[in-house]
Design a protein around this nucleic acid. Structure first.
Lengths: 176, 176
DNA sequence: AAATTTTTGACTAATACTGACTTTAATTAT
DNA sequence: ATAATTAAAGTCAGTATTAGTCAAAAATTT
């Protein structure tokens, strides 16, 4: 379901400059490689199996690295395609100043939210000029009770929370 | 400790910057060729076997490209004739006014829609300037599989249909 | 020793490509 | 005219080529 990031775990003694870390595991190495490329270019496109070969790991480890180190929260978008000519593309996005505030809102939403409270949040976004009226209306129309109603009311609030979280997450970074 | 979701890493949920696509397979190349012509002209007429020769593929691959990339949902009509002097003609359509178009889309959506088809519809809205990129990305983010996923997949497509219909209805009224 | 993170691989899903066979239409032969 | 031939395009199922998922095992950290 939900993965845990290690980005905020407290490192024991001091700030470790990653370039001096002498005990890197394979995932760290792959991460470093990709981030080096992303230091120059805005995006990087890889073939999963090539990467796996290059780093002598199984292909699914590439997914692991991407899932734990290249999330939207960390400022990356990932696209992919299967089949012949398939690829995985990682895009670095610029996080906005509002990102922190949006994160707090996402925190507040948690795993469930009523229509009324969702409305309040959208209202706040509008008042703080983070969205325009038209965007507010779009959001609200999708979060209506009539759209989300299910047999179970609990589920409805859960869905609304996921949706609103998706909206806010989308607002965190600059559009491409 | 902050929980980080990996829900946004896999399915493409926003319009990508196609200018950096460097991993094209044959079908993509054929698609690009046809769309380039359609960028200038309203329609393009080809002979299947000629195309197959030009791109060194089997003739049926041309059908594959057309079936996957030139559907009605994507805004194209395709006519053809077999036998001597046969041809395939692809026509770019854009004949409805906005309200009509929205109604038609709502009709097409019906009571269920996959993520993929929802993407096509949003793409069409964007291409026809009925929404801006930011709005498109907001819509797509809310219709992600990971947002709507429930125990039952059927329910997911049902919810997505209701949501997309709500979006379109919203756009429809706003115009009036 | 408990919790967390990393590594692995079997299984699944999506997309692309191929070719044998079918259908349709025009042309040629009778 | 009618039949036979030829010249297209269509279909569909099978193969190939990628990437994704998930849970268990292994390693590491707390």
């Amino acid at each position: 379901m939900v993965k845990v990031s290690n980005m905020y775990t407290i490192q024991p003694h001091c700030f470790s400059n990653k370039s001096h870390m002498n005990n890197q595991n394979m995932s760290d190495i792959i991460e470093a490689y990709l981030k080096k490329v992303l230091g120059t270019d805005e995006q990087v496109e890889i073939r999963r199996s090539e990467m796996a070969d290059r780093f002598s790991c199984v292909p699914s480890q590439i997914n692991y690295v991407i899932n734990t180190r290249f999330t939207v929260q960390q400022g990356y978008l990932v696209e992919s395609k299967r089949g012949g000519g398939g690829y995985i593309r990682i895009i670095k996005v610029k996080l906005l100043d509002e990102a922190e505030m949006l994160d707090m809102m996402i925190d507040v939403i948690g795993s469930e939210i009523s229509q009324r409270n969702a409305y309040s949040i959208v209202e706040t976004l509008y008042e703080d000029s983070m969205i325009v009226r038209r965007e507010a209306n779009l959001m609200l129309s999708a979060m209506e009770k009539s759209v989300l109603s299910l047999e179970d009311c609990k589920k409805e609030n859960e869905l609304r929370a996921r949706m609103l979280t998706a909206f806010l997450t989308n607002l965190r970074y600059e559009q491409l």
